[in-house]
Design a protein around this nucleic acid. Sequence first.
DNA 1: ACTGTAGTGGAGGTTTTCCTCCGGTTCGAT
DNA 2: ATCGAACCGGAGGAAAACCTCCACTACAGT
Lengths: 192, 192
Amino acid sequence: MTPQPFPVSEIVASRRPHRKDAARNFDALLAAARAAFAEHGAEASLEDIARRAGVGIGTLYRNFPTRRDLFESVYADEVNELCQVAEEVAGLEPWEALTAWLDRFTGYTVTKRAVREALDGDAEIFQACRKSMEAAGGPLFERAQQAGQARRDMSFDDLLRMIAGIAATAFDDEDQRRRVLSIALDGVRASR
Amino acid sequence: MTPQPFPVSEIVASRRPHRKDAARNFDALLAAARAAFAEHGAEASLEDIARRAGVGIGTLYRNFPTRRDLFESVYADEVNELCQVAEEVAGLEPWEALTAWLDRFTGYTVTKRAVREALDGDAEIFQACRKSMEAAGGPLFERAQQAGQARRDMSFDDLLRMIAGIAATAFDDEDQRRRVLSIALDGVRASR
DNA sequence: ACTGTAGTGGAGGTTTTCCTCCGGTTCGAT
DNA sequence: ATCGAACCGGAGGAAAACCTCCACTACAGT
């Protein structure tokens, strides 16, 4: 196990029960919720999620007393994975590292579209996710800027939102998604 | 009244009742639905929509027998407005015309996010909307390409999806939205 | 092995939303 | 002014989702 330097990992970990069976159920619920939110959007049925996870509805409610609690956990879980990825690509060249990370980003956010929709701004956990993302991806962006490959008149937050928007869009196929992403990134490149 | 050269306008017009009171209710329902979908997403309560429109639930169901019918109408209505805008900007310089249209596009699609989400692909009306958008915006894009200002290795559909994604994203403020949009459009510019 | 405690699952009451149905109303053509 | 067709609205039954509660089960520490 590698150490987790990001605030979000704490958040999910602290919710996870200690007992073996409970932890298993917790994980199953998180996975089921992730799938359900991706498929049916933010209003997915909680009973359905419990059923998919193979647990009773009561178990869902004990782990996540409100729908929002469940959202927050799914969201934090994804952000956490994304932070790990940022470390994986750290060895690449500045621009390649940034684009590789953003490429993975678009993959994860397919689910996040629905999740974020419900998490409109005012969640405390949202701040932690922000911070983690900044901590993970910010350096990649700054490195690309210092290498003269990314423009300086935009913030990391600008970049993130642009990519998030594109990631949430439905494309005809994987090719189109890549093409559009690379066009948008051409706009991020420092003008030659 | 200007003539309506786009297929979508037919679709909405053909649904609209002829009698005065009925037409008024139809319009009120459409407006209420638009607001409700923008606010609560695709699962907004139909009874709530009827209440907002100041009509009974029965009236809603007569005009739009299914939820999908209502979606389709709201969607077609917005696409229609967007087509009109394309004609308004036709007089500008090629690149300015394109960006002006896309800028208006981002405004309208705030609502459309929720609508499209539910209209996943297989609607007949969706084809008509596609066609109309293509007919309205396609020429603007091609003109910019012929003027050597837009890159040629992307399709109009690519452009539309990129913009739609950005339009659906929540930004801190109007400034950020404009900034991000213009960065993405820098990627669309023909490289100098 | 034993025991206390944390965890489990689902029955069922409550609330919300859906959608039909029909007695009464309004419009517009004559 | 009158008439009939088109339209209105909401009562109310069906279906779905929510969420509480508690008798039962399985884990972890001794």
